[in-house]
Every structure is written in structure tokens, then in C-alpha cells.
């Protein structure tokens, strides 16, 4: 774990204490917890519900009401595919499909089960001259094709293996 030993959960305790475990403070509590974890894990929400004396369902209700909160973790690598007009006419949809097939994702499931990849589609990255564009962890790849996309995923995976 990249995080220091137990630091995240310590922070949860600290946040709950600071907000005096009051149900009325639920939104700022969730907000700060999300900053720690980058998303809201279910078991942490259950813990929060227990601590502030409400049902997990009502915490879940608040967490899903605001689109700011996210309930699924982001993968280690974020792949963003531009689906703006220029990229779209140059078949970005095909690239999205390829990635979904390669990473076993769909419209609902944006993050791969091994938490390695998250696929996002974005409106326009302002790099229309390079269309279609894929951004992998802030690295821009232009004039993408199906084959180059698969190649890209392969090289990220290989990089992971080399590191391990």
C-alpha cells in the first residue's frame, strides 16, 4: 500500500471526531473521507453510519445523490479517450470499444477488476489535430488506431511487471 500504515483509517477517526459524529455533518464527513480514499468504500460508509447512528442506506442515499461523490475506486492508470467531434469522426468510438473489450469494462463498469485501469471518455482535449487522441496518465497519444491502443495497454502492463 502506497499509503503509510493505517493512515487512511486514522484520518477517518479523526474526521469523525472533529465533526463530533453528528448526523448533520454527514456531507462534510463524506467529502473529507473521499479526499483520503479518492472514493467512498462501502465498508467505510457502513462505519460512518454506525458512528453517527444512522442506517447505511441513508449514508448511501447521500453519497449517491451528489455526483461529486464516487463509489468506485479509480484504477492506478487512468486512460482518457477523447470523444469530441474531431475524434468522433475519426472513429474514437472504435477505440473505446477496443479498450472496453481489452479491459473487460462496460458503460457501467469503468474500472478494471484488478484496479489497474480506469477508462474515461472526455468531451474535447483541445488536441484535435492529433485526432483520435488517447491520454494515458497525462501522456498524450495521437492518431490512435485499434492496434496502437492495444499496444499501449500492453506496454503499461509490461511496465507494471518490470516494476514488481
Amino acid at each position: 500500500m502506497s499509503n503509510a500504515f493505517g493512515a487512511k483509517f486514522d484520518k477517518v477517526c479523526e474526521i469523525l471526531d472533529r465533526y463530533e459524529k453528528r448526523p448533520t455533518n454527514l456531507i462534510p464527513i463524506l467529502q473529507e473521507i473521499q479526499e483520503e480514499y479518492s472514493y467512498l468504500p462501502e465498508d467505510v460508509m457502513t462505519y460512518v453510519a454506525t458512528a453517527i447512528g444512522t442506517s447505511p442506506g441513508s449514508v448511501f442515499g447521500v453519497a449517491t445523490f451528489y455526483s461529486h461523490f464516487t463509489l468506485t475506486p479509480k484504477g492506478k492508470h487512468v486512460i482518457r479517450v477523447c470523444d469530441g467531434t474531431a475524434c468522433h469522426v475519426r472513429k474514437s468510438a472504435e477505440i473505446i470499444k477496443t479498450l472496453e473489450a481489452e479491459l473487460n469494462l462496460n458503460a457501467e463498469k469503468k474500472t478494471s477488476s484488478d484496479l489497474m485501469f480506469t477508462l474515461e471518455t472526455v468531451a474535447c482535449l483541445g488536441a484535435c489535430g492529433l485526432a483520435p487522441v488517447v491520454v494515458a496518465d497525462d501522456e498524450v497519444h495521437g492518431a490512435m488506431t485499434k492496434e496502437k491502443t492495444i499496444e499501449l495497454i500492453k506496454s503499461i502492463r509490461e511496465g507494471e511487471v518490470a516494476h514488481a
Binding site: 462501502e42 460508509m45 444512522t54 442506517s55 447505511p56 442506506g57 441513508s58 442515499g61 445523490f65
Partner: peptide, 26 residues
């Protein structure tokens, strides 16, 4: 409190927490 509102707008639902089955919760 086994059932509650979740999501909003066109996606709004009433159901158990974490979209679990009603037999898997309290």
C-alpha cells in the same frame, strides 16, 4: 432504515444500501 432513496433525477431509486439485495441487508 433498510430501504432508502439513492441516486437522483432519472436514476433515482428506492432500495437497499449499496444496491444490495434486500435479503443481504438489515
Amino acid at each position: 432504515g433498510a430501504l432508502d432513496f439513492a441516486y437522483r433525477g432519472a436514476k433515482a431509486q428506492v432500495g437497499p444500501c449499496y444496491s444490495k439485495g434486500i435479503g443481504e441487508i438489515e
